[in-house]
Design a protein around this nucleic acid. Structure first.
Lengths: 339, 339
DNA sequence: ACTACTTATGTTAACGATAACATTGCTGAT
DNA sequence: ATCAGCAATGTTATCGTTAACATAAGTAGT
């Protein structure tokens, strides 16, 4: 597409040099007011659109940000993207959105393409499922400006915006222990090679330890981050346990909890009487469930805003101070925990 | 950011010309296999990333698509974007995502920026709230490759992917008439200058006409597309009508219906006994409501796929045939209608 | 041994915009 | 009348890549 009209065309049409047209359209000094007027009119009538590609080549700035998210269906991410978009819009940045679909290979590919596009910076929520951070190290080494959000990779020289996953997870687990007296608590965990998967498991263990409950490794199941994986993990737990099922379940996020709830119902058990359950995210659906889900509220929009602000200040003020920005969470006590 | 390493740097390091390096990295013929090997290794070790900006300037192709959506929070759109993303990914296109926030001014600005970025094509769901299509006409005239989705602007030479809004709206309204015998049916309509707002109102009227029910203009309220605006419109309707409220409500979309439901409940009325209600979209929340919402299911993912496919074929095969692609809908009968 | 190819590589120009420097032509101070 | 000073405009080179044309060196055929 593109209008094909260039500065040169306007210049020829008016019998001036391309430079004069450039100056006039950028409203520089040292251009006759009448010339400016003529140029502007001609540009308008010829349907001129400045070519940012050419401008970027000269300025080595594209005024674009690359955004990499692991899932676009989990409502949390679109909400983060909205926060990012709002901040980017105000600072006149355009967004390249890429969805890695929980695949590190695809994430890596996306990041390479984005670097090739010469985005001014990257906002990444990692799908990493192995412990080799060398890819990130090399791009940061190579001068890429990166801010992680939600799922962070730490100690590699990049800032990160997230909630305190460990503490929040501990708090909601403690709620089950202190308010309801449950002692048999299972955890549907996320992949252990993604920060939030690990942190939330730590939080769960912290809570059990703090109350002298023994940690039963059999009650800790890898459940992924999705509804289907949550469903499957819960089925496994129920089948395996027989009658000796846990009294309560801490799910790594709300989609997982929603999947697990489905499994519990299919088993003819009721929530919270037979099994209590809590999540993490505060998905838009969570308050609407038959038994509204007790969960940790994560301010997604704000997370997006903060991440974008940090990245833009990194770009524009060249302020590369590595920060770990923590967004406060709050417990949403509803009834799935027994309250 | 960017790696700063250019072809020239590699060329100097190896004592060859930049052209040889370019040829080697693009795996062209007529380059010595040993040279290719040396170049590839050097490029790797120097952390070279090809500069797509420069490439685009020469080729006049950016391999990017601009996506303009009116709302990012309404779950329907992220799902459409996922469909778009999937198709774009397979054809190696990157996505510029912009959110117009239901403001035409912002949409216009976004489109201008995207054209300036020289995207190869545009996918637009319009926020247009006036009848002046000249802006679209001029960009299409200027050679922009555009495919509309969901909210279309017709007869201006661009393809469009959407559902049959009028017919679907008629069907769901007819369900209320034929299955439940309601005669007093209100409509919370969308803005009349957005295609879907108008079409869905037409469908509602078609249904009433087909069954010889009189159309009461007082029962047609502009309710926007959002939960809040749906809430407000419903309040207006309830306050105005006193006891003489409608038996059923057809909402322009699910968020509007959800807002209206809140208002109905606040008035102490029950659904569907006092007032039945139906929506349009099939939002993820709709099946989870206390009284699950009867609605029209719109295959969002598929809509995104179709739109992206059409646009990419337009770009790559230069196939500008204007098409109106209709995605079939289905009625989701739940209990809010009285079933 | 000389032309006729082929293979591998180099050089130049172009994409569109603009920074940096160069050139006009004018005003006004001496 | 002369020249400094400035306003308005023009020219050249550059960003990184690649198409198109040019050249060098080697091989084969006669």
């Amino acid at each position: 597409m593109s209008s094909n009209v260039t500065l040169k065309h306007i210049a020829e049409a008016l019998g001036v040099s391309a430079m004069t047209v450039s100056r006039a359209l950028n409203d520089r000094d040292n251009v006759d007011e009448k010339t400016k007027q003529r140029v502007r009119e001609k540009a308008q009538s010829m349907g001129y659109t400045p070519n940012r590609v050419a401008k970027s080549l000269v300025s080595r700035k594209t005024h674009t940000l690359g955004v990499v998210i692991p899932e676009i269906t989990h409502a949390f991410f679109p909400e983060v993207v909205r926060g990012i978009e709002e901040v980017a819009y105000k600072s006149d940045y355009q967004l390249f959105l890429t969805n890695a679909n929980e695949l590190f290979s695809r994430e890596k590919e996306a990041i390479e393409t984005l670097r090739s596009q010469r985005v001014d910076g990257l906002l990444i929520s990692s799908s990493l499922t192995r412990e080799d951070y060398s890819f990130y190290e090399s791009i940061i080494e190579g001068g890429a400006k990166v801010v992680f959000f939600d799922r962070c990779i730490e100690n590699i020289g990049a800032s990160c915006v997230s909630v305190n996953d460990r503490e929040s997870s501990k708090k909601i687990t403690e709620h089950l222990i202190k308010e309801h007296g449950y002692t048999k608590i299972a955890h549907l965990s996320g992949p252990q090679k993604v920060s939030i998967g690990k942190e939330r498991l730590f939080g769960y263990k912290d809570a059990l330890n703090a109350h002298n409950l023994t940690i039963n490794e059999k009650w800790i199941l890898q459940a992924g981050f999705k509804e289907e994986t949550g469903y499957e993990a819960m089925i496994t737990l129920l089948e395996r346990g027989g009658d000796n099922h846990p009294e309560a379940v801490v799910a790594v996020n709300d989609p997982t909890a929603i999947g697990a709830i489905k499994a519990i119902k299919e088993y003819g058990l009721t929530i919270p009487e037979d099994i209590a359950i809590v999540g993490f995210t505060d998905d838009i659906r969570s308050s609407l469930l038959d038994v509204p889900l007790t969960t940790v509220h994560q301010p997604a929009y704000q997370m997006g805003e903060e991440a974008a602000k940090k990245l833009i200040s990194f770009i524009e003020e060249d302020d590369g101070t590595v920060e770990k920005i923590e967004i406060p969470t709050s417990l949403k006590i509803r009834s799935s925990c027994g309250c």
